[in-house]
Nucleic acid binder design. Structure first.
Lengths: 204, 204
DNA sequence: AAAATTACTGAACACTGTTCATTTTGTCAA
DNA sequence: TTGACAAAATGAACAGTGTTCAGTAATTTT
């Protein structure tokens, strides 16, 4: 009964074909330009065919969002070599902001756009997001273990920290940082994060 | 030569007619459902007419965004009675988050959606946004004057604080708070803000 | 080879923003 | 009041969008 296996394999190959096309369009024109008809054109199938492999466009964007997370996760790992927990947390924030500024399209897909969010909802279906959150959480737990942020809760603190860096990146990406002159944008954005974290009760 | 005046007045009346229709649709179905054709239908004019009064759809959304800011600003004023600057800042944050959770559609229009952002860009053209920022800035200046956040810059601190609350609200609205069980959502969101601010070097 | 199953198509539906040649309406001097 | 000009409004057309589904083509099973 190798036929079923082949069929399954062919199905996966077709899904990959669709996703690869979506990825190409996304890289070349931005994810917002990824349309069903454009993908169909690219892979030389009819638009209807795509719906035999994906529930809808959002499901395809969800997969692109997962790929973006993989790239993001790799970037995050660059902080692993730092031993001092608080220094690591600071670098973590910098890496996060830098990723957002350097990859606006991927960042939107991961954290701003509605589309893949409808495929998320629960923690079970948002593996990539949870993995990233866990990474931050463990960093903050190390800080707590080292005596920083006395009396605070890991989870709450993690969400606060994440919200801070996300707020910085997303306000910038959505053009709500009009009060900052363009030439000072980058230093101000990184500075906002550092000012906040430096004002924390970070003494052991 | 009263004709020119009448013409100008009629032009303003027509703009209001369009905006009122846009507002109605926005309230009833959400701003994302505000389409040129739907407005045209509502006011019993052809779609093309709308373009004689507004450059494009974004300009209409920008006006709705301004109205949202007016409501937001009124809400913010509720903290004015608090004298102690740090307590006021805390309440300011709570009011901000509450507004976002209670008015998701307005919040999106003000701070998340791309559309009105293209009409913003510079501080000159984003009056409403700047007004709100100034309000926060003055609150933080009061904190600095009272000895809080020693050695920090007002502007940078304001941006950091704003980013924190915006991050909390926008991650929630865009369904990226999957790690928080729904029943604890509200307390966790407010808690994230309070944990962060309580961890600040807020002693005089 | 015929029947049954699976895969694919592409037209159709219901939308979207925006433009522009054409028509209608309003103003004003003769 | 009529003709000329200007201003205002129209609505079809362009170029898209996601999604569905009756019908056709290809493959597999009997």
């Amino acid at each position: 009964m190798g036929i079923k296996q082949r069929k399954d394999r062919e199905r996966e190959e077709m899904k990959d074909l669709i996703l690869d096309a979506a990825k190409r369009i996304s890289i070349e024109e931005g994810f917002s330009k990824v349309s069903i008809r454009k993908i169909a054109e690219e892979i030389e199938y009819s638009p209807g065919t795509i719906y035999l492999y994906f529930k809808n466009r959002d499901e395809i964007l969800f997969e692109l969002h997962n790929l973006a997370f993989q790239k993001f996760y790799k970037e995050q790992l660059k902080i692993s070599h730092i031993n001092e927990p608080f220094e690591k947390l600071k670098e973590h924030g910098r890496v996060y902001i830098k990723f957002g500024l350097d990859n606006p399209d991927l960042y939107e897909l991961m954290f701003i756009v509605q589309a893949p969010g409808n495929e998320i909802e629960t923690s079970q279906s948002w593996n990539e997001g949870m993995k990233t959150f866990e990474f931050l959480r463990s960093n903050i737990q190390e800080c707590l273990d080292a005596g920083y942020f006395k009396g605070s809760d890991v989870n709450t603190l993690s969400i606060a920290m994440w919200s801070l860096v996300h707020g910085i990146v997303s306000l910038y990406l959505r053009k709500r940082m009009a009060m900052v002159p363009k030439e000072f944008m980058k230093p101000v954005l990184f500075g906002a994060f550092e000012t906040m974290i430096d004002n924390l009760n970070n003494k052991k």
